[in-house]
Write a protein that binds this DNA or RNA. Structure first.
Length: 233
DNA sequence: GCGACAG
DNA sequence: ATCTTGTCGC
């Protein structure tokens, strides 16, 4: 099951988007493919501008062992959906999808800046993106959308389960000593233990995974380059 | 009805 | 997310 460009249309209303999420969540698989080998791990991100409706997307693929970039792709797409908490994927995935199509070297796992199943309807951008691209995916957010968790130790590697409506939907993970944790949840073709392990492995030095940091760097560079080109008109 | 609310 | 300067701490 590869990319599914026609999974559904993107020009929908918020009400239709919610209905699509309820339907799509049934397809999410919460365990990794048998014998998954993570040699390449990637990060996806989108950057937007204040007085503009253009979204700059990007994906950076890293060697999982060295966390060195091996491939990348960017995109600039007009945003067709507003930011609505719980419907982030309808705003950002169309942008990420263009970058994904341009990516010549595909990763084994894709980490999104946002949540997976730690979502009101269990279909955050990581789960939706994993389904769309047919790839194992992980959600790694900087703040919670839903759920609560207990206190966690100060050491790097400390964790505490995120619970929502009686279900464990993710894990608060301390990637740096005495620094606010990140919130990890499975996207698609992924389970929580593996997601936590991969995020920790990808975050040896900073709070956020190197995948997310590199993708963030790429999309911001694209946005600034576009802004400077516009000034010379 | 009120508060919360990824990026 | 973006708009913005300086500032506290390792």
């Amino acid at each position: 099951m590869e990319l599914q460009p026609e999974m559904h249309r993107w020009d929908v209303t918020p009400t239709e988007a919610v209905a699509l999420q309820r339907q799509l969540k049934e397809r999410v698989v919460l365990h990794p493919p048998a014998g998954l080998r993570v040699e390449r791990i990637a990060g996806a991100d989108v950057s937007t501008e204040k007085g503009n409706d253009t979204g700059f997307g990007g994906i950076v693929v890293l060697d999982a062992a060295t966390l060195t970039p091996v491939a990348q792709a960017g995109s600039a797409v007009t945003l067709g959906f507003p930011y609505v908490p719980g419907l982030l994927s309808f705003r950002e995935l169309p942008v990420v999808a263009v970058a994904w199509e341009r990516l010549t070297v595909k990763p084994d796992v894709l980490i999104f800046d946002g949540h997976g199943i730690a979502h009101p309807r269990r279909l955050g951008i990581a789960s939706h993106g994993g389904l769309l691209f047919g790839i194992p995916s992980i959600g790694c957010g900087k703040s919670l959308l839903v759920g609560t968790h207990g206190k966690l130790g100060e050491a790097r590697g400390a964790t505490s389960p995120i619970t929502h409506k009686g279900e464990v939907v993710g894990m608060a993970v301390r990637t740096r000593k005495a620094v606010q944790p990140v919130y990890v949840s499975p996207g698609h073709l992924m389970d929580l233990p593996t997601a936590v392990e991969l995020v920790l492995r990808a975050s040896p030095k900073y709070r956020e995974p190197e995948t997310t940091r590199q993708a963030h760097r790429l999309v911001n560079a694209l946005r600034r380059a576009d802004g400077e080109a516009a000034e010379l008109e």
